[in-house]
């Protein structure tokens, strides 16, 4: 099947039900997208499918052919993505960092859709888990990126 990831269309030879996560990590070698739980609980595997945050660990590869898939490796290719990364650095968000690819992409999607999100918007969108508990800094960074 063909998948379009970060603007490049690639042929991948995998079983149709292979989760997008493992296609991205193993077939395309993009390891910024992380495996955390495999059951759509934590969000470490978040990628954007046509701009929408998607848990790639439970997304069969053949369900996203013909879409535009965007991973953390391409986050700085949009103005909003750049701003989010800058806000993440400015606010010193990451600790272990393992969940942050998913957090950054989720924030970028939120701010693309809603440039000036309310607190409720942020709470509704930023639902990925972080075991290091960086939640307060994530909130501050999203607000910071929105103001920028």
């Amino acid at each position: 099947m063909q998948l379009t990831v970060n603007g490049t269309t690639r042929d991948v030879d995998v079983d149709a039900d292979t989760p997008l996560l493992w296609v991205i990590r193993e077939e395309l070698g993009l390891t910024g997208t992380k495996y955390g739980c495999g059951v759509a609980q934590c969000g470490a595997c978040t990628v954007l499918v046509d701009g929408i945050p998607t848990r790639s660990c439970v997304t069969p590869a053949d369900s996203v052919t013909g879409t535009e898939i965007s991973t953390i490796e391409a986050v700085r290719e949009t103005e909003v993505g750049k701003r989010v990364v800058e806000a993440w650095v400015e606010n010193q968000v990451p600790q272990c960092g393992y969940c942050q690819s998913g957090q950054v992409l989720t924030a970028a999607a939120l701010l693309t859709e809603t440039p000036q999100p309310s607190d409720d918007d942020i709470e509704g969108a930023m639902i990925n888990l972080c075991r290091c508990g960086t939640y307060n800094k994530i909130r501050a960074a999203v607000r910071g990126a929105a103001e920028g």
Binding site: T33, V93, P94
Partner: peptide, 11 residues
Amino acid sequence: PRYDVHDKSTG
């Protein structure tokens, strides 16, 4: 600041 936050924010 910590020196690993940029890499950890960009995968």
